[in-house]
Design a protein around this nucleic acid. Structure first.
Lengths: 223, 223
DNA sequence: AGGATGAAGTTGCCATTGTCAACATCAGAT
DNA sequence: ATCTGATGTTGACAATGGCAACTTCATCCT
């Protein structure tokens, strides 16, 4: 069923693929309006179905948003993987992945906000499971490449080093996350090109983390 | 005027201080429910006025949210200032300010999201002026303390160093911003105490940025 | 075959919400 | 004393999220 019934043939009552249609409609609206304030009903209109059809596929508006967010995570992870695959050295891979991450967020601010802005964190249970899983995937991607080589090649797999890796992961992610939002929100001028800006920042931080600890150069500045 | 007219004395038609009352009611709701989905009408109910009274003080719901956000920025800046004042050394001040920043965000996730989550970034004009101004104040606070001493005491005020300072500011802010959200969103386990966690990260990054550039220890990893 | 079953879509309805317009109340300047 | 403008109030409207009851239709079980 290749379904050639977009406008013609007075569509056969059953849409056939509504769920996906709704999600992509939502992504379209996000891209077009850059605003998170769209209505379920508008999505239904766009999909050409009646305002209650979506409820057969999503329990809730929140559920719908979660699906959209999950879709966003999927393509984010995909892009990070693609960019990383272009390099062989772990450090270059790390840079590539984080660059892709930032570019994704800067290019799709509304979707990014949906994904990370806590719009789904309802009254109680925290974010929905789909989203959580998707975010977990992204994190593991990063963790893997960091573990592969970062912070000093061939370090033994001791718990101590595990902690160090977790710290590096957190640092990288935080930096990328924060920078993305600052740029997307226009809180830092769009002056510099974000890629090299980030490269500089990340390089500095990684070098700093790689320092063996004791050698802090400016003694008077106690942390 | 300690106003003891909560239920009694059939309040005198004119509330007297509605604007502030509404804003604090909003802050209360944010703190209580940790959700951004409250209605203008509910605020009015809490304030004991009718559902259209707020419109005499705020043009819009967005305008109201902007005021709340601005209030958030005000107390954030205040806390950062207080914490910074406890230390004399610029580096310690920087750490204290950023620690206060993160703690504020982690303690009031909903408000923080309101402030930075782009809920106010309407269709077009970007965030409202009040908010923009408040954020600017916060940034200048950080910039000042960084300029005061960071990255190497008594560096001359060349354009080159200006750029370096801007970079350090951006790095610090991004790191704090990102870390705050990751913790607040529960994307990183609440395991570690966030203060020392952040101290470690920031120290590493600052040391990295302070490195005079050429000395990158791991040659094979081209950025 | 042929009717039962249940998933997918529809229409109608409801309470709530943001916002507008018209009216009421009151404090202070003229 | 009145006029006036700021502040509150009531009433209405369209749009929204969500529920319930009905329809359509493909699929499975004798």
């Amino acid at each position: 069923m290749a379904m050639s019934h977009l406008e013609l043939a007075e569509r056969p009552y059953h849409h056939g693929d509504l769920r996906r249609t709704i999600v992509t409609a939502a992504l379209d609206i996000l891209r077009e309006t850059q605003s998170l304030e769209f209505s379920l009903r508008e999505l239904a209109r766009r999909a050409g179905v009646s305002h209650n059809a979506p409820y057969k596929h999503f329990a809730d508006k929140r559920d719908l948003l979660a699906a959209v967010s999950a879709a966003g995570f999927e393509t984010l992870v995909k892009r990070m993987g693609i960019e990383a695959a272009k390099s062989a050295h772990p450090r270059a891979q790390l840079f590539a992945m984080l660059r892709a991450y930032i570019r994704y967020g800067v290019d799709n601010p509304a979707l990014y906000k949906l994904m990370f802005g806590g719009y789904l964190t309802g009254p109680e249970d925290g974010r929905p499971a789909v989203e959580r899983a998707a975010a977990e995937t992204a994190r593991m991607l990063l963790a893997q490449v960091i573990r592969d080589g970062a912070l000093g090649q061939a370090i033994p797999d001791t718990p101590r080093n595990e902690r160090k890796i977790a710290g590096a992961l957190l640092a990288c992610w935080s930096l990328a996350h924060g920078l993305t939002q600052l740029i997307a929100d226009g809180l830092v001028g769009p002056g510099k090109k974000s890629d090299e800006l980030f490269d500089t920042l990340l390089k500095g931080m990684l070098d700093g983390l790689a320092v063996k600890c004791p050698a802090l150069p400016l003694g008077t500045w106690v942390g």
